[in-house]
């Protein structure tokens, strides 16, 4: 098992926002997280990445057979977890190219990925300063591609993106998750989506519905999304009660 979350509880400030979450992702699998605003989806991703505002109050996270529950963020990143943020901070004065440079690899490979996402003109701009919604998503995705993690956490990769750019983003995510490989796929993903648009670009293996900090339903992601669309989140949760 690549990722194994057992009985995980997470608090933000004094408030517990996730209660006893169990979730496993195997190598090569893509999972989707559904849920209303405020249901705990972003908190789960932030806790998996190790952000200090998301305090783990119980349970365990195992990744590649290691207990990473208390591991610093950068060590999780080095071990193979990468995340695309929904609202990343603005880093004034820090150029996008300064961060890109830290990923290593060959210069020509970096340039190929940069031009693939039409990001060449962003290299001299401060990270996320004045970026539109779509530009933030592309910048996040570019960083992830160069970081090359094994477990890819995507927080609403399609929100605020126009229809032309959603194609570029959808195809990049598909490639990042090695959807072109039938066997020997090593990349796995956990994706938060509200619109479900991203499901048009990649086959997901499993869906999870978060409601009020609990996982309330698990199953075929397309079927779940259709239920949510036609009958709402509560109806989707009802099927397993």
């Amino acid at each position: 098992m690549l990722l194994e979350i057992s009985n995980l509880s997470v608090a933000v400030g004094d408030k517990e926002v996730l209660h006893g979450i169990n979730l496993t992702i195997d190598q090569g699998e893509t999972h989707v997280l559904f849920g209303k605003n405020g249901s705990g989806k972003t908190s789960l991703l932030m806790a998996l990445m190790g952000f200090s505002n998301y305090r783990i109050t119980g349970g365990q996270i195992r990744f590649k057979d290691q207990d990473i529950t208390r591991m610093p963020i950068n060590e999780r990143a080095r071990l193979g977890i990468g995340m695309s943020f929904q609202r990343p901070p603005t880093l004034r004065g820090v150029k996008t190219k300064d961060l890109i440079r830290t990923f290593g690899g060959r210069q020509e490979d970096r340039e190929k990925e940069i031009s693939g996402l039409n990001m060449a003109t962003f290299m001299d701009r401060d990270i996320n300063l004045g970026f539109s919604g779509g530009e933030i998503k592309k910048s996040e995705l570019l960083q992830l591609i160069l970081q090359d993690p094994e477990l890819i956490l995507l927080d609403e990769p399609e929100s605020g993106v126009d229809l032309e750019n959603i194609k570029i983003i959808g195809r990049s995510i598909k490639k990042l998750l090695q959807k072109h490989l039938r066997r020997q796929r090593t990349k796995s993903g956990l994706i938060i989506t509200h619109t479900g648009l991203i499901l048009n670009y990649l086959e997901a293996d499993m869906g999870h519905l978060l409601l009020d900090g609990h996982i309330r339903c698990e199953g075929n992601p397309r079927e779940m999304f259709e239920t949510i669309q036609t009958a709402g989140y509560e109806e989707c949760a009802r099927c397993q009660r």
Binding site: N74, R78, F85, L91, G93, V94, D98, L99, T102
Partner: peptide, 19 residues
């Protein structure tokens, strides 16, 4: 945010101060 890209806390701080 920078640590999530693999930088150590010190590397991240130095990059931010430079910026």
């Amino acid at each position: 945010y920078l640590m999530a890209r693999g930088l150590t806390e010190n590397e991240a701080s130095a990059l931010i101060v430079r910026g």
